[in-house]
Design a protein around this nucleic acid. Structure first.
Lengths: 210, 210
DNA sequence: TATTCTTTTGACCATCTGGTCAAGAACACG
DNA sequence: CGTGTTCTTGACCAGATGGTCAAAAGAATA
């Protein structure tokens, strides 16, 4: 078992290479679809060498998943109760969409895991994730109560943000196939989603300070 | 190789059982994650017997996928240019959400395939799917031009319907984990999505006959 | 340079998995 | 009932795959 922070320079380099390779391969083929040989090759190591750094295939996967969880929750964490509600929510949408652009593999790794029933993540979902979402849902509910945004279900609002933004990473092949070549799906999505959430969130009877 | 429509009663029964089992197993584990033994067991057959009806694992998968494609496009097909625009679109959302409720395995089978790059479906996506979507996008564009609905990108509108409805099937574990027990996610989604699309589609300056 | 600790690897293994095959069981039908 | 056809299965196989191990090669340190 390795220590949490790799000690030597060479250890750090190789564990990083393995995780990068694992991300690449797992996100493309899923856990069972990925092979140690693929990952080893992608990391530029021999299979036994790879297993010198991680005790098993599953260990690599688990490490990736738990690292990912933090990155994944970050954008939601950044949404602050004391900001301007619509702005805060639109900014959250923006951050999530940027993640689809910048970290599509991470998104697909996550998607693969969830679609298949999250066998290795259920606790995290019902734990950290649920807690954070519940907390932010309360913030959103308060905004709605104050008439700052429309009165909609906060949980489903958050789901809709996830669904709409991650779609552009997870279903990228489909999006590309349907749109055809020469387009920038995420740039277009930026505009579209801005409009969508602006309209969805606009309070019925605006209560304006300013 | 089997004839398209299974001849004998027993052939029909077994091929059906196999496809049902395949759907169950593939949708839960993905193509590579599924094993012939699992499928055979789920179908109540021995592995060699299963291979008497389908020449290979891939053949089962392909059969499922192509059958699925039709079912999948149906709800969009039903959206008619001569209906009331907002109604037609909301009805489409409704149908898609019902599919998430009634055919979650089909949705996940599809999701698995797309997330992993659609290795066995790319042609279908760029062919039938793109054609249908382009056609319906034109209908939507016309509605927008006539001021019947808001002027938004039709392709991304369709993507948003897919993303939002399929999310409740594909990411069901996550939705359940976050919402906690004792709720009916899809019933709630029905309300939420109705509101969302109503607001999104409402034309800026209503052009009303009636 | 000698010694020790870390890193790397070739050879190997047990198991799993997709798929084959020949022979037996069940069935349809005259 | 007899016979040809369809259906089913136990035994088997080759290749892939996750993982082991002992020994070699490379740092690091003295």
């Amino acid at each position: 078992m390795n220590l949490q922070p790799p000690k030597t320079r060479i250890q750090r380099k190789n564990t990083e290479a393995i995780l990068e390779a694992g991300l690449e391969v797992f996100s493309q083929h899923g856990f069972r679809g990925a092979t140690l040989d693929q990952i080893a090759a992608a990391a530029g190591l021999s299979k036994p060498n790879l297993l010198y750094y991680f005790p098993s295939k599953e260990a690599i996967h688990v490490t990736l998943l738990s690292q990912l969880m933090e990155t994944w929750l970050d954008p939601l964490h950044e949404m602050k109760a004391d900001g301007e509600p619509v702005e805060e929510l639109l900014a959250y949408v923006h951050r999530k969409l940027q993640m689809s652009r910048d970290f599509p593999r991470e998104s697909r790794l996550f998607a693969n895991e969830i679609v298949q029933g999250a066998p290795r993540m259920k606790e995290a979902l019902a734990g950290d994730l649920k807690n954070l979402v519940d907390e932010k849902a309360e913030v959103i509910r308060a905004w709605a109560r104050d008439g700052k945004i429309a009165d909609i279900d906060p949980h489903h609002l958050i789901f809709s943000i996830w669904a709409l933004t991650q779609h552009y990473a997870d279903f990228d092949v489909q999006v590309q196939a349907v749109l055809g070549p020469g387009r920038d799906p995420i740039a277009e999505a930026e505009t579209f989603l801005h409009t969508l959430f602006e309209r969805l969130l606009a309070p019925s009877r605006p209560s304006g300070p300013a």
